[in-house]
């Protein structure tokens, strides 16, 4: 079975358009959940800073629940559980909703820990100048917290890309699902999966390089750590 390269290459070429659309789906899903997860994380951070103790409690519960629950269980709950209530969502919608709930919780946790490293007197200075609660958040808290969290947030994008393989378990035909099809046409599983691993590795490397560029751009001059 170590041979079979010609057959594998032929099938690969034949199925290349499908594999490529799968790759596009993977990238699309990764981009969408990275964005919604970031926006969700910002909203959750805003709520954790709420002046109402009930809102703060609920937000904390949200974060620990979704960080504690395996993503795959959440996806299965949405995909195989909700139909019991007559709610049938497409694999794509399930993936977006499930990932967003999960990723937002993680991002909120990173942002909250960055918030704890902020100079509180700066925020007090903002209030003293007459800025509203929301203005202090938007003008002072968020720009700093986001900058400090760039490494954690970009790391989350890498995790999102890698975890997007889970979507294939709920019948979403992304890249890994297409590789699966390729493997099952010629039974050359090792070659097909190794190819997939290589592609993911290259994509991760691209994100790492992009993240370094972003990090350099957002650094605040004269600020250590």
């Amino acid at each position: 079975m170590t041979g079979g390269w010609p057959a594998f290459c032929r099938d690969l070429l034949e199925q290349f358009p499908l594999i490529f659309t799968g790759l596009v789906q993977t990238l699309r899903l990764t981009a969408i959940i990275s964005l919604t997860g970031l926006l969700g994380g910002i909203v959750v951070l805003y709520l954790t800073l709420s002046r109402s103790p009930i809102v703060r409690r609920l937000t904390q519960a949200y974060i620990s629940f979704f960080i504690g629950m395996p993503l795959i269980v959440l996806l299965f709950l949405l995909y195989y559980g909700l139909p019991q209530w007559g709610i049938r969502l497409s694999p794509f919608v399930v993936a977006v909703v499930g990932f967003t709930l999960n990723v937002a919780a993680y991002n909120a946790a990173y942002l909250t820990s960055a918030y704890n490293g902020l100079e509180q007197t700066e925020l007090e200075a903002g209030r003293a100048q007459g800025f509203s609660h929301r203005q202090v958040f938007a003008l002072l808290t968020l720009p700093q917290v986001l900058r400090m969290s760039v490494p954690a947030l970009t790391n989350q994008v890498i995790l999102n890309l890698k975890d997007s393989t889970l979507a294939f378990l709920i019948q979403y035909t992304e890249f890994f699902a297409r590789i699966q099809e390729l493997a099952s046409t010629n039974f050359q599983f090792f070659k097909a999966y190794a190819l997939a691993a290589l592609v993911y590795l290259l994509l991760v490397s691209a994100i790492v390089l992009a993240a370094r560029a972003v990090e350099k751009r957002v650094i605040i001059p004269g600020l250590l750590g």
Partner: peptide, 20 residues
């Protein structure tokens, strides 16, 4: 309160400039 605060210029002990 916000209008009141705008009318009082506050210089903090550690200056509290916005670092970003």
């Amino acid at each position: 309160v916000r209008a009141l605060r705008q009318g009082i210029g506050f210089v903090f002990q550690q200056f509290a400039l916005y670092r970003h």
